[in-house]
Simulated assay, not measured.
Amino acid sequence: MTEKKQYNLVSIIYDDLCLYGKWQLLLLLLVLITAMLVVLVTYQTRSMIIDREKLVLEKNNLDTEWRSLILEEKILSHHNRIERIAMDKLQMHYTELTQDNTLY
């Protein structure tokens, strides 16, 4: 009778990798590390792109507000408007000098 010898598959794979496949094991580890780094860099890049878009939107809002404030300043500082407010609300009027340089 012949006995069948059983082999442990895990030990065979371990022996092959450690004794004969050191370069392959090293390359496998390098590929896994590189893959993880690619995922990390992609995540950071997408986060930076999202942050940049938020900043661009904020810049656009601030630019719009700035333009509105400049227009408001120009409207409020217009001489005719100031003169009309002074006459209507404050009852101010122009003074005239008489020929003897006294106020009328």
Results as ranks from 00 to 15, higher is better:
67 R>T: 01
82 I>W: 01
48 M>H: 14
60 N>P: 02
22 K>Q: 02
61 N>W: 03
21 G>P: 02
23 W>C: 15
22 K>D: 01
50 I>A: 13
90 L>Q: 04
38 V>N: 01
93 H>P: 11
52 R>P: 10
45 T>V: 03
55 L>P: 11
44 Q>N: 12
10 V>R: 12
70 I>H: 01
49 I>H: 08
75 I>L: 03
87 M>V: 14
55 L>A: 03
64 T>V: 03
46 R>C: 04
41 V>N: 07
92 M>T: 11
100 D>Y: 12
47 S>H: 09
38 V>E: 01
32 L>N: 06
39 V>L: 07
78 H>Y: 11
34 T>Q: 07
102 T>H: 14
89 K>Q: 10
70 I>F: 02
85 I>C: 01
66 W>E: 06
70 I>C: 03
13 I>C: 06
26 L>I: 09
66 W>H: 08
73 E>A: 04
79 H>D: 05
19 L>V: 13
81 R>G: 02
17 L>H: 06
62 L>C: 04
49 I>T: 06
7 Y>C: 00
17 L>E: 02
10 V>I: 15
43 Y>R: 10
97 L>Y: 11
19 L>Y: 13
35 A>G: 07
71 L>Q: 10
49 I>F: 06
9 L>A: 11
34 T>L: 02
22 K>G: 00
40 L>H: 10
86 A>C: 05
86 A>M: 06
5 K>A: 02
34 T>S: 07
7 Y>A: 04
40 L>R: 09
92 M>C: 12
66 W>M: 12
28 L>R: 14
82 I>V: 03
37 L>C: 09
87 M>I: 12
30 L>W: 04
80 N>R: 09
41 V>P: 00
102 T>I: 11
37 L>M: 06
33 I>D: 06
63 D>S: 01
76 L>K: 12
60 N>F: 03
56 V>W: 09
97 L>F: 11
13 I>H: 07
94 Y>G: 12
37 L>F: 04
98 T>F: 08
72 E>K: 15
92 M>L: 13
7 Y>N: 10
85 I>W: 00
80 N>W: 14
27 L>D: 04
18 C>E: 13
22 K>P: 05
32 L>G: 05
9 L>K: 15
12 I>T: 10
17 L>R: 05
31 V>R: 15
81 R>V: 03
82 I>G: 02
8 N>H: 02
35 A>P: 10
52 R>F: 13
75 I>M: 00
102 T>F: 14
36 M>C: 10
23 W>D: 15
13 I>S: 02
50 I>L: 09
88 D>S: 09
53 E>D: 06
78 H>C: 04
81 R>F: 01
28 L>M: 07
18 C>K: 15
59 K>D: 06
34 T>V: 05
15 D>A: 06
16 D>V: 08
61 N>C: 00
43 Y>N: 11
15 D>S: 13
34 T>R: 09
61 N>M: 09
7 Y>Q: 05
99 Q>W: 11
11 S>E: 14
62 L>N: 01
74 K>I: 01
90 L>F: 00
63 D>V: 05
72 E>T: 07
49 I>V: 02
64 T>H: 13
12 I>L: 12
52 R>S: 03
43 Y>S: 10
36 M>W: 13
25 L>C: 14
61 N>T: 07
17 L>C: 04
29 L>M: 13
53 E>S: 05
16 D>K: 13
42 T>W: 08
8 N>G: 04
26 L>S: 12
79 H>Y: 15
85 I>P: 03
44 Q>I: 02
